[in-house]
Design a protein around this nucleic acid. Sequence first.
DNA 1: AGCACGCCGACT
DNA 2: GTCGGCGTGCTC
Length: 663
Amino acid sequence: MGEECAEVVVNINHPDLNRIFHYRLPAGMGKPQPGTRVTVPFGSRLVEGWIVGYSEPEPGISLREIAGLGRPDFTKELLDLARWMAWYYLHPLAEILELMSPPDRPKRLVKCTSPEEKLSPQRPEDFDLTGEQQEALRRIEEALSNEKGERFLLYGVTGSGKTEVYLRATEFALALGRQVLYLVPEIALTPQIGALFQEAFGERVAVWHHRLARGEKYRLWEDVRKGAKGVVIGPRSAVFAPFCNLGLVIIDEEHDPSYKEQERPYYHARQVALMRSFLNKAVVVLGSATPSLESFTAAVRKRLQLLTISRRPPGRSLPRNTVVDMRLELNSGEPSIFSRYLQEQINLRLKRKEQVILFYNRRGYAPLVFCPGCGEVLKCRNCSISLVYHRQTGDLRCHYCNTRLPLPASCPSCGSNKRLCFLGTGIERVEQELSLLFPGARVLRLDYDTTRGKGSYSQILSLFAGKKADILLGTQMVTKGHDFPGVTLVGVLNADLSLNLPDYRSAERTFQILTQVAGRTGRGPQPGEVVVQTYHPEHYSIMAACRGDSNSFYREEAKRRRALEYPPYGELIRVRLSSRREEDVVVLASELAAELRRQLSGDQVAVLGPAPAPVLRVKGFYRWQILLKGKTLPLRSQIEACLAVYRKNNSVIISVEVDPFGY
DNA sequence: AGCACGCCGACT
DNA sequence: GTCGGCGTGCTC
């Protein structure tokens, strides 16, 4: 006769242990709730784990008893979320639970360190929403009252006041006694939004990010769990906050690729947030001026309700767009990274004391360094990638593994001591040329390398906001949600760079970046202008972005993705194998691919590859990959079983990425 | 992952 | 005789 036993997941990361073990409860004790942390005897040692449920074990296994009970780490809802993630992302449950675990209680709980709350002035409610903003807000409020967990896509052009809608929806949710999760794409953006919300809602707002001190984290988590905090603002990981009464989830800039975790377990915070709100029947608002094709399609299919804001508030017009065909520019006069038209426009702003943002998406000074003696391009010794010359630090760097080495005096390949040549243009070279062309201009550079120091990111931005500079030259970083009313010109120096990435999303990314960066201008009383330099002026994503015609972009992009059955018209899973020995990877990859073909046979899933990864070698590891395309959702367990077998080979690491970014 | 068990070489 | 090398196999 069976007996109800606790199902325990042990916190050890090994493919053989990615399952449930049954344990007896100590005598004279009720059932601890699933999600409770436990210590259990495991073989000859004690290990940590969690109770995840109760059931009757198979007959014939010798049961042992739970050795120790810990705190309840997860509510049923969070546990269900973890289970869903483990299933959907083909990832060990233990590792997901570890990721979601609440912060440890610090040894010494510091007395209240929260700075004496500056009396938060109630935000003035006196300025009017536009009709479209009002309508969006009304529908969200209605949904909050209905408590049916409705989902919205707030599709509002840049500068249309989406944040104001979020603020008022939050106010409404709080008034109903519900908690609010507000996701932002990056840590860098949390302080700004956080300050705005704290001003409106004072102490009820928790600004969460991973760099908080341990005690602070612990206290915030506890406050959220008890309901003392009504709003949690933060990046990806904030999606795991222990809400007790979640009513509204806002995903700001929902298209932003930063929501996708780039390391294990490769989850997408937007997707997790959607599942979490489903489990809570919470209302979701996905907001963007350039929705992901996934969300756009979901709106077309009525899985998201569409809320549109098509106009900026009165007096704020959308910028004028000019496309410069750099091919024609090349044929006439001396070539420069700055077209003559853009130079004229920059000069005009400088004369008028207006500000300029320039976007150039390539770090360093020169992306290629080569030897004129033998023609060899200098490569990283750990990665199959060219080294980039950084002038500021005078060294060569690998942008994949971060290796740095001094610029060699002679060619490492042929020994010639002819001077090495720099090929191509990075942002440092653009900066240099900028100072030659506009000697009087004050230029700030915003990229990965100028923002290493603590606080340097916000320092650069506040210098620019305080008009201490005329030109802000930056990489991707300048495209994200900033609001500089003094900017009347945005220049995109090379719109094509993101088009050639090995990613089926490259056209979408290009469209989004161009539209977003264009949206950084004309946010003040003066109208804005955008100048886009490109060698592909006829490309659909560049044309659509420049004309502000997003519908034609989505139509074209949807057509292409559908034809190739890429997401959202098919699911994609990338299985990556890596090892220090290339032959091991090649052999195992082809065996695994053959086995997957056998297991998943049928026309539902295509097994593509194996093929070398776009960058074959990174950090000394050779990487090959297999792509699964098609209806993979019903086949998760077959895929999992198949991988488990091949993971027994311990010289080759197998990692799985569901819905990968890039190939 | 860890840890025990097991089956062969050189050592106080 | 036994100490210890790390291959193999198991963990409710």
